[in-house]
């Protein structure tokens, strides 16, 4: 088959950012998968609740402190996270480096609070179905914090390496920031579900 050249793309940028980048869309798709998973876990919680004659199945009310502190911390972390996304867009190497260090700390701190959240539920996973779903929801979200933390740490190392100053890396940084927004956003309904629904 003969070929007829109709379009010259020499001037196209060699890498797409934001909506023009494949990883951005990939991240979005994975967020959709995980979001469905989170939503289902909440549905399971509500389903079990609707079946029980008395919800929490004789378990005591969860303590608010750790969970609320964690929620506040996560919300606060959004600010540097949004900033870092902007710096990445502007390709500011130094600022991105500093931002990543801050985000690494802000990614690790919730884990400490999470450690206190499990006992604050006053129920074990093998005590009854309420305990099971509560632990699984907390565990599921913890996994997401950990994955994002690892990703942030790796990115931090990358940005300090010779591979750092490159549009592709800045794209990775902003995708990572987007993912952290997602981690925070999914926590909010879970927080309501875990701490406030049983108080109704």
């Amino acid at each position: 088959m003969k070929q007829a050249v109709v379009l010259d793309l020499t001037r196209l940028p060699p890498h797409g950012l934001g909506g023009a980048s494949l990883t951005w869309w990939g991240t979005l798709a994975f967020m959709l998968i995980e979001g469905t998973g989170f939503a289902l876990s909440i549905v399971v919680y509500l389903y079990l609740m609707s079946l029980a004659s008395q919800w929490r199945l004789h378990a005591p009310t969860p303590d608010l402190l750790a969970g609320t502190a964690l929620t506040a911390l996560l919300i606060t972390s959004l600010l540097p996270n949004l900033l870092i996304a902007r710096w990445a867009r502007d390709q500011k190497l130094v600022k991105v480096r500093i931002g990543l260090i801050i985000m690494s700390v802000l990614g690790a701190a919730p884990l400490v609070l999470r450690f206190f959240e499990f006992p604050a539920m006053h129920v074990k996973w093998d005590q009854n179905a309420y305990g099971s779903i509560v632990w699984v929801m907390l565990g599921l979200h913890t996994t997401h914090i950990i994955t994002d933390l690892i990703e942030t740490l790796v990115l931090t190392c990358l940005m300090f390496s010779r591979h750092g100053d490159n549009p592709r890396r800045y794209g990775d940084v902003s995708d990572n920031a987007m993912y952290w927004n997602f981690v925070v956003a999914t926590w909010l309904p879970m927080y309501v579900c875990l701490y406030w629904v049983p108080r109704l």
């Binding site: 088959m1 003969k2 070929q3 007829a4 109709v6 379009l7 010259d8 793309l9 001037r11």
Partner: peptide, 11 residues
């Protein structure tokens, strides 16, 4: 069926 329109400029 005989000619295909194509682009150039890729690395």
């Amino acid at each position: 069926p005989d000619t295909l329109s194509v682009v150039t400029g890729l690395s």
